[in-house]
């Protein structure tokens, strides 16, 4: 009898902060294996047959929902999509009641997207099922960070390795970005050097505790990085005086053709989507050979399959 390698992962995936180095690598390596299977003509695996996964989305995010749905279905799980507009803030059914309802329906896992930070942490306290945070307010979006790291590693590293010594710039609205928070934690866990580039208004107070460098000058940073991750900037931020105008933002912090030429050869351009073309990234950059934005989307399915397998593929709820 062969003693397989058994894995200890946290019960839920709420924050990248819940993972250690080995666990993060395990997810990436598992995703590599699953990506190869996804390339095969038959894309369905029986692994999660009989498991029920609920996509509980309190926010519109078609791309994330579809990615999780595809991942769950390729592993033969039953998928229920539950779109609930508004939270208890707007006096709909409370998140807790929704959680209890889903549990009564026998959900093994809930993939939660919610407009408020910490919603996934709260949900985890109310349900027996596995909770996967698919983006909570301005807190975290762990699977996005995992797929970003996976994409970067495919180009700049190799299976089994981390991102030691790689330099990644994250540019844009860090203050309101769950993608940035998860990426800072994960890239740091994997040994990368991180530089945040944004106007000071869009960098949180308290950032001094983060393992990052800060720059207000994108042109100085770009020549030194192995990858640059552009964050979505919402134009409504302008109304709250985070920056004077979208034009000024674009001029000072947007990625355009001239700036792309500052990047070293082979450096990658990432964007979590959806993009504001012409605001934080120009069309030429988004569609350039250095852009891996579409790969990110494809890799999302493999990474989410890995997360679903690793959290749901064993004896969940039994001493886990």
């Amino acid at each position: 009898m062969t003693p397989e390698k058994l894995i200890e992962l946290p019960r839920h995936l709420l924050s990248i902060g819940d993972l250690n180095h080995n666990q993060a690598l395990l997810i990436l390596d598992t995703a590599e294996e699953l990506a190869r299977i996804s390339d095969a003509p038959i894309k369905k695996l029986p692994t999660l047959r009989g498991r029920t996964i609920v996509n509980l989305f309190f926010e519109d995010s078609t791309r994330t929902r579809i990615s999780f749905e595809a991942a769950a279905k390729r592993l033969s799980a039953d998928v229920i999509n539950f779109s609930a507009k508004g939270s208890s803030v707007s006096k709909g059914e409370s998140l807790k009641d929704t959680a209890l309802t889903l549990q009564a329906m026998g959900a093994d896992a809930v993939v939660l997207r919610h407009p408020e930070s910490g919603a996934a942490n709260r949900l985890a306290g109310w349900t027996n099922g596995v909770v996967i945070n698919a983006g909570d307010g301005t807190h975290e979006h762990p699977t996005q960070a995992l797929l970003d790291a996976f994409t970067i590693r495919r180009h700049l590293g190799s299976v089994g390795s981390d991102l030691e010594g790689k330099h990644i710039a994250i540019v844009g609205d860090v203050l309101h970005s769950r993608v940035a928070r998860s990426n800072v934690l994960l890239l740091n866990l994997l040994g990368a050097k991180i530089t945040l580039v944004a106007p000071p208004t869009l960098i949180p107070v308290g950032v001094e505790s983060w393992p990052v460098n800060i720059s207000y000058n994108i042109d100085e940073v770009l020549p030194e990085v192995d990858a640059v991750m552009m964050l979505r900037v919402q134009s409504e931020r302008m109304k709250n005086s985070f920056f004077p105008s979208t034009r000024e933002y674009s001029r000072l912090f947007g990625l355009n053709l001239d700036r792309m030429n500052l990047l070293p050869k082979g450096a990658l351009i990432l964007h979590p989507g959806p993009m504001n073309r012409g605001l934080e990234i120009s069309a030429e950059c988004a569609d350039s050979v250095q852009s891996v934005i579409l790969e990110q989307v494809a890799n999302g399915v493999s990474v989410r399959m890995a997360v679903l397998y690793l959290l749901l593929g064993g004896n969940i709820g039994v001493g886990a």
Binding site: E8, P46, L310, G313, G314
Partner: peptide, 17 residues
Amino acid sequence: LHRDDLRSRPPRALTPT
């Protein structure tokens, strides 16, 4: 990924095929 006893133990790491 094709085992029928996955649920009896914690998840297993995949070995590259």
